[in-house]
């Protein structure tokens, strides 16, 4: 049940990415190119996704628990730290260079295009690398500080 639900939810997400045009790097990059061939579509994608999610979460998160788990797994941190801001800034640079973000690239794998495979392989390597560096940094920093 859990697996079928997960598959269907992934499919809805992947179909949404495909319909919205966000699997297409040129379309994503043209949103940011206000000085060139501006394509405002990404704002409509974000707008549609945000309205539905904000309304839906209001009802869902009022419940004591999700349907097939004992508790909601929500991020609880509210502090703004350097890794959050620097990491997000770095992510934007990569997004601007390649035109793919993770949520756009993963469904785009289904088109079988080699460019997507190359990007995703590099992205996974970047995640592994960053995890290793973060682990090493955490090991060197005393936890009492």
């Amino acid at each position: 049940m859990r697996l079928i639900l997960s598959y269907v939810i992934g499919l809805v997400f992947g179909l949404g990415i495909s319909i919205s045009g966000m699997a297409n790097p040129a379309k994503v990059l043209n949103f940011f190119d206000i000085a060139g061939n501006w394509d405002p579509s990404l704002a409509f994608v974000m707008g549609g996704a945000l309205v539905v999610t904000a309304l839906g979460y209001r009802f869902v998160l009022r419940r004591p628990a999700p349907l097939i788990d004992t508790a909601f797994h929500l991020p609880t941190r509210r502090d703004l730290d350097a890794p959050l801001i620097l990491g997000s800034g770095v992510f934007g640079i990569g997004w601007g260079i390649a035109g793919f973000c993770p949520g756009g690239a993963l469904p785009a794998l289904g088109t079988g295009r080699s460019e997507v495979v190359i990007f995703v392989a590099a992205m996974l390597a970047g995640i592994v690398l960053a995890k290793a560096v973060r682990g090493a940094l955490a090991a060197r920093t005393p936890s009492t500080v």
């Binding site: 949404g16 998160l61 999700p66």
Partner: peptide
Amino acid sequence: SLGGGALIGLAAVLLMATLG
């Protein structure tokens, strides 16, 4: 883009409602 975005939002709501 609006419709595709709404589907992305629907997936987000469904994942929170079921698996949390």
